[in-house]
C-alpha cells in the first residue's frame, strides 16, 4: 500500500460560520496516485482547492499534506508549503501573459527555495527539457505566453506545475478549453510526467468521460455532506 500524500479528515468549512459549504468526512490521496474528483459548478470545488492550497483554513477537521497538518502552520508557512509541495494547473489563463514560456515554467522556483534546490543550477535547461517532453517546440519556448495556443499554454502550465518535482499536482478543469485530440494528448503527457516525477495527481473536472484513465474516481457532490456551495 502506498503512503498517504494528502489526508483530509472531518473537514468542515463555511465562509460564514453558520453556513457550511463543505463537509468532507474523508478524502485521501496516496503518493503517486491519480485521483479523479468529479466536481460540477457549485459542488464546493473551488473552496476545496483553496483549502488544499492552504489559502483557506477549515473550521473543523484537518488537512495534512506529506504528514504536515496545515493547522500547525501560519499563513506564511502554508504559502511556503504550497510553493514547495504543490503544483497547480488551472482551466485557462494559467500563465503570466508578459513572460515567455520558459519564464512561466521557472516562476514557482522564485517562491520555493526547496524546488529551486531540487532543480539545481540547470533550471532553464530543465524547464526546456520539460517543455520539450510536453511536445512544445523549442521555437515556442521564448514566445510570450499570449502568443501560444490554448493547448500550448496548458502544456506550459503543466510544466510549471511539475518543475522542481512537487509531490502533489492539482489540476482544475485543465482540459475543458481543449478539443478532444488536444485533450487526450495533454492528459497522456500529464500522466507520463506525474509518473516520471512520482507525483500524486488530483484532477478536478465535471467531465465523467475522463474518469476511466485515473487510478480512482470520486464524486464531490456525493462526498460533500453540506450540499451545494459557492464555486
Amino acid at each position: 500500500m502506498r503512503s498517504a500524500l494528502l489526508a483530509i479528515e472531518g473537514l468542515r468549512f463555511g465562509y460564514q460560520p453558520e453556513r457550511t459549504v463543505l463537509d468532507l468526512p474523508e478524502l485521501h490521496l496516496a503518493a503517486g496516485e491519480s485521483l479523479f474528483l468529479r466536481g460540477p459548478s457549485g459542488s464546493g470545488k473551488s473552496t476545496l482547492l483553496n483549502l488544499i492550497a492552504g489559502v483557506l483554513l477549515p473550521q473543523a477537521g484537518s488537512i495534512a499534506l506529506l504528514g504536515q497538518s496545515y493547522a500547525s502552520l501560519g499563513a506564511g508557512g502554508r504559502d511556503r508549503f504550497r510553493a514547495d509541495h504543490i503544483g497547480f494547473v488551472f482551466q485557462q489563463f494559467n500563465l503570466l501573459p508578459y513572460f515567455d514560456a520558459i519564464d512561466n515554467v521557472l516562476l514557482p522556483l522564485s517562491f520555493s527555495p526547496r524546488r529551486r534546490q531540487r532543480v539545481g543550477s540547470s533550471a532553464r535547461a530543465q524547464a526546456a527539457e520539460l517543455l520539450a517532453r510536453l511536445n512544445l517546440d523549442t521555437r515556442e519556448h521564448s514566445r510570450p505566453a499570449v502568443e501560444l495556443s490554448v493547448g500550448q499554454q496548458q502544456r506550459v502550465a503543466a510544466a510549471r506545475a511539475l518543475i522542481g518535482a512537487p509531490e502533489l499536482i492539482v489540476a482544475d478543469e485543465p482540459t475543458s478549453a481543449l478539443d478532444a485530440d488536444t485533450r487526450d494528448t495533454f492528459l497522456a503527457l500529464l500522466f507520463d510526467e506525474c509518473r516520471r516525477a512520482g507525483a500524486g495527481l488530483l484532477f478536478v473536472s465535471h467531465d465523467r468521460s475522463l474518469e476511466a484513465r485515473f487510478d480512482r474516481a470520486l464524486d464531490l457532490p456525493a462526498l460533500n455532506r453540506a450540499g451545494a456551495g459557492p464555486c
Binding site: 506564511g76 489563463f93 503570466l96 514557482p108 517562491f111 510549471r160
Partner: peptide, 16 residues
C-alpha cells in the same frame, strides 16, 4: 486578479 491568483498558486504571499 487572475495574474495575482497565478502568483498566489505558485506560493506568492499576499504581502508580496
Amino acid at each position: 486578479r487572475r495574474e495575482m491568483a497565478i502568483l498566489r498558486s505558485v506560493g506568492a504571499r499576499p504581502w508580496q
